[in-house]
Simulated scan of single mutants.
Amino acid sequence: MAGGKTPKFCNEAGVRVIHVGVKEFECIGAKPPFDHPHVFLDMGRENEIVCGYCSTLYKFDPALKEDESRPADALYHEPAHAVAGHG
């Protein structure tokens, strides 16, 4: 992963499919505080995977960069205070 950080994706919009540019990532469900346990998903040799918590189907799209998704707002950015650990 770029910068050594695993990207996180959420399905706040409730779409059936989210296209991502990585095969290893975390699904968090909806945005906090309505998120489900953050689960690491690894597609391996496959090009799609379903989250066992929220049933979102993730499909790998090699045209997308590691920090891109379709829909674009599925890529979750943690608030600055959470990243800095000031909780």
Rank of each mutant, 00 (worst) to 15 (best):
H38P: 05
P37S: 10
E48N: 14
K8T: 06
H36N: 08
D35I: 00
D42Q: 12
P37I: 04
E26C: 11
H81L: 11
D35R: 04
G52V: 08
A30C: 12
R70G: 07
A82E: 09
I18Y: 06
E48A: 13
G14D: 09
T6E: 15
V22Q: 02
P37N: 10
E46H: 13
P7T: 02
F34D: 08
L75F: 15
V83T: 13
L57K: 13
H77F: 14
E66R: 00
D73S: 15
E68K: 04
G4D: 13
A82K: 09
E48K: 12
F60N: 04
G14I: 05
A13Q: 12
L41E: 03
G14L: 10
G14Q: 07
S69P: 04
L75E: 02
G3D: 09
E12K: 03
E26D: 12
F34S: 09
H81W: 15
V22W: 03
G44P: 09
E48P: 01
A30P: 00
C10W: 01
V83A: 14
A80K: 11
P71A: 12
E68W: 05
C51H: 05
S69L: 04
G3Q: 07
A63C: 10
K65G: 09
V39R: 07
H19D: 09
G21P: 04
R45K: 13
G85E: 05
L41F: 13
S55C: 11
D61G: 04
L64N: 04
V15S: 03
L41Y: 08
F34A: 11
E48Y: 12
F25I: 01
H19P: 00
P62V: 06
E68D: 02
G85I: 01
A63Q: 12
P33G: 08
F25L: 06
V17K: 13
E12N: 06
G14V: 05
V50G: 01
L41A: 05
A13G: 00
Y53F: 15
D35Y: 06
C54D: 15
K5H: 15
E48V: 01
E12Y: 01
F25H: 03
P71E: 09
L64Q: 05
F9C: 03
D42T: 05
V17R: 12
A2K: 11
A72S: 15
E68I: 01
H36S: 11
K59N: 05
E12P: 02
K5Q: 15
Y58L: 06
K65V: 00
A72G: 14
H77Q: 14
E24W: 02
G52K: 07
C54Y: 06
V22P: 01
K5Y: 14
A82H: 07
M1T: 10
S55F: 13
E66I: 00
C27F: 08
F9E: 01
A30N: 12
R70S: 14
R16Y: 12
I28V: 10
D42H: 11
S69A: 15
S69R: 01
G4K: 08
D42C: 12
E66G: 03
P32V: 01
P32L: 02
N47R: 10
A82N: 04
A74C: 15
G85V: 05
N47D: 15
G87T: 06
V39Y: 06
Y53P: 00
V22C: 10
F40V: 05
E78C: 07
